[in-house]
Amino acid sequence: MPDIIQFNQVTVIAGQNKTLLSDITFTLQTGAKLALCGKSGAGKSTVLKTLLGLHPLASGSVHFNGRPLNASTIAAIRSQAAYIGQEPVLAADTVHEALLLPFQFKARRSHKPTKAQIDAVLARLYLPQAILGQACGQISGGEKQRIALARGLLLGNTLFLLDEVTSALDPESKQAVLKVFADPSLTVLSVTHDADWLAQCSRVLEFEAGRIIMDTRKDSHHDHT
């Protein structure tokens, strides 16, 4: 499978010389499930945000589909990847409006989903249809995470950047989400501590103080520090 994401000796420094990432190198193949784990502040979320252009590189390089990170690559990543954080921002009054929000933008206006497509995605994530009329401010954290995931699926994204998306889910909802991401056509780069999620990933990178301290591949069982 071709590499969709390549981090090559990436270092990210914020503010007054605070190193967020140091010499990070890894690749992510199309369809692979890669997990980033480690303590809070270890640099896991920074990897996702760097890929989205939210942190400039101090050194090293990042490639997306073989192209180096620049304004046009960042635009491509943002249009092809779905980023879902721990507390997703739905940025709408009702759930229905939240699901249709991206389709108000020029680039996606002609791809508005049908009601049947919306209902099918909700069903995949164990969300009732009645939730569509609810106010975003009144639904639970777990429901917000699944609505954000549903939005990504409706957009037809095949790359998912997930930051602790199972943290607020009940066991049943978590199983539904795990089932969705078992799909081999979806590429997933996720920050997680969840054992069930880790079990589904093909590779796990463990972070500490902005560095990768362990790289575990499920296929070869190859570890190094």
Binding site: L52, L54, P88, A91, L155
Partner: peptide
């Protein structure tokens, strides 16, 4: 800022 970035990450142009 989270809302603004959400718009960008959902495919909005900078102006949108």
């Amino acid at each position: 800022d989270s809302e603004y970035l959400t718009f960008l990450l959902l495919g909005a142009t900078h102006w949108e």
